[in-house]
Nucleic acid binder design. Structure first.
Lengths: 219, 219, 219, 219
DNA sequence: CATGAATGAGCTTTCATTCAT
DNA sequence: GATGAATGAAAGCTCATTCAT
């Protein structure tokens, strides 16, 4: 797992100082939780994979639940939030000839990030339905996302869409989650890399048409 | 949970005879698994909620895993499959004025079924990522679905779409799962009933535009 | 197991009337106890092998322990006792040229019986060390055995042995149990049939010499 | 059980380091297994008798079966093997006037060891008939025993016996097991100490005569 | 601090036994 | 009588957590 960028993001959060040993623990926990699930992973397994004593796991994280909450909190903070907003400013400032071009650029950007972050999302998705604290955390972060900016950009590229901002955001989220959820989290084995790229292009074409206003269509 | 239709569908599968006590066990297990997750639910809890002895849980289901696999198998068989295909034949034979009308009818149909089946989907989604057997079961069932018929109907309603059948199916699945996954499984509390209906209408409008072929748009 | 004579002896004890169903249960229990041990055999297994309902096992035998005690009691009564004494009267009345001839005849007799009764002895040996009731039962039966007659016969065949009766009995029991215990109960796989017969002949030669009195040896 | 020498032998095997707590567990397990049998002893009972937590039983021995196999392996290694071969070298080098003297010395030696090791033999005997692994272990060890040396000594003491080595070994094993099996394992209460010594002397006299060759007897 | 042996509550599972049918 | 579903105590075993070293 050495190669994942988000791991470094999670581990090198400047607001908290964690020792190298603790980094090993978190790294091991993320790997195991995403492969086997939280409940099916024992603290002993985590300690062994991390190469530390079982007792050390409980030094920074008094309980196993604290460990996963720490991980999820930092996934949201350092990975989920940047995942959605990263490169948004650049995208926003760059002019696009068409809505399709913009969506393609946007999707391509997310595609890489989501594929790389798959282990994190698996952890999130497992725990969200059963942990209200996590849902609350997520919703709070959501509000900070520059979703309205994306929507505005879409509206003003080409001719104005006749969907309002909130609808646009909802539609984008729907398509994004629908696309990645089945392909990466649920059925990774049936969606090889090259097919994902192709499917994404089709989806973007579909979306760029969908956003066209009645007016545009009649041009 | 008495009120859920699918419970009766699951419990009254004619190919298998299960006793009333076993129905109580399955009912309790579904409720607890969907609320707390499989791993976090003990067989003792299930027995208590069902009002039977712990030993009775193991009469029909030799292991706890057999219990959840039974449930998932029957969810797929009696609920997931009908969920997607129910009313499809009627929809297919009925003429629609526009693609939007057809999609609206289709979505409305699914909406009810999915909302009602939410506990089942929560169980499925938790276990899919960690149980290859379940993924295999699902993929097998998927092949039996009349997805191509839906796609054909869409193509032939109004003027032909220039997406091919497979793309159409993928897009519909993407939109459906994206729509319901976030609204019902992940964040049920932030999507009240009336908003779901409104959002669905917006999505359908978006989709019906998206499926328009270039030709149509230029008419 | 149909072919074992002792089974009929056990099952057709005239002093107790047992139904055909009960015979099936006893037959199954003997087979399973001797193969797997008492504790490792469940009442369900017995019922299944016997082809009866679990409840039926508890009709004649209120507890599982009652079942094995019944079996052991009847093994001792109908099999162990006859095993040691069967044919003794004939042997006693027949004249033998030498002590070796007599011992050979005696051993041959026992050999068959013990080999056939092996499953019964396995059951006995397992339970003797842990059940004082069984030990008491056995010791009571032992007293009834015509051991003294055998000893007398040995003494009077050829020239008198200078061992007394009790010693002779002890020696015979020692040699018999030592011979069969290792060969049939403990390591059946390393003692093929033909080797047992040969070993028995050697042992008998050894014994017949051992019983020779000092006087005899000097003749 | 503090007083048994073999316990120290088992517990202080230099090739394996076991903690004091583990020694308590093994000690308790041996005591309970030999009194009640393996299947009738629960891990909870063992833990209580050892004065440790139940979980600790499973630290060194992942399953209950591993525990008894460890014990049996170490009984064979540190007790059964020495039991048969201990003092053999001294016996072999010492000259004896007669075969009876040699056998007496040999028996006396074993007598003490077997009486003291009775609990171990009870464990062995219970499990041998049902556990092929144990039989295999035993047979392997048997091959390493200096049985042929004993046989040679017997042959060369006084005048040559006309039994061959294998026969001599078989006869000795038959007499030894027959003697101890009934007296110590099966019916310990009916053979008081003083009687065992006397019986052993009679048996040895019997055996020393039995081994005499025809030639010798005619001298 | 780091360790990992020790803990014991609690898990899944088994099984002798009961009893309504 | 015969049945086998139902029972629940108790089994083997796991695991988050503690704490002496």
């Amino acid at each position: 797992m050495e190669e994942y960028k988000w791991l470094n993001n999670i581990l090198n959060d400047d607001t908290e100082k964690i020792t190298d040993k603790q980094k090993l623990i978190i790294r091991a926990a993320i790997e195991l939780f995403s492969k086997q699930g939280y409940a099916a992973t024992s603290t002993r397994e985590i300690a062994q994979k991390a190469g530390v004593a079982e007792g050390s796991v409980f030094k920074l994280f008094p309980t196993k639940k604290d460990l996963i909450l720490w991980i999820i909190k930092h996934i949201i903070k350092t990975s989920l939030f940047p995942l959605i907003s990263s490169g948004i400013n650049e995208l926003m400032e760059k002019p696009f000839n068409s809505r399709e071009d913009f969506l393609n650029a946007f999707f391509e950007n997310r595609l890489e990030l989501i594929q790389e972050g798959a282990p994190l999302f698996k952890i999130l998705i497992q725990e969200i339905p059963f942990q209200p604290e996590i849902r609350a955390m997520l919703l709070e972060q959501f509000k900070k996302l520059p979703l309205d900016i994306i929507a505005k950009k879409l509206i003003t590229t080409e001719i104005n869409s006749d969907f309002n901002e909130i609808d646009i955001i909802n539609i984008i989220i729907t398509c994004l989650t629908g696309f990645f959820f089945s392909r990466i989290i649920m059925f990774p084995e049936i969606f090889p890399e090259n097919r994902i790229k192709n499917d994404a292009a089709v989806l973007v074409r579909f979306m760029s048409r969908g956003f066209k206003s009645e007016k545009e269509q009649n041009l």
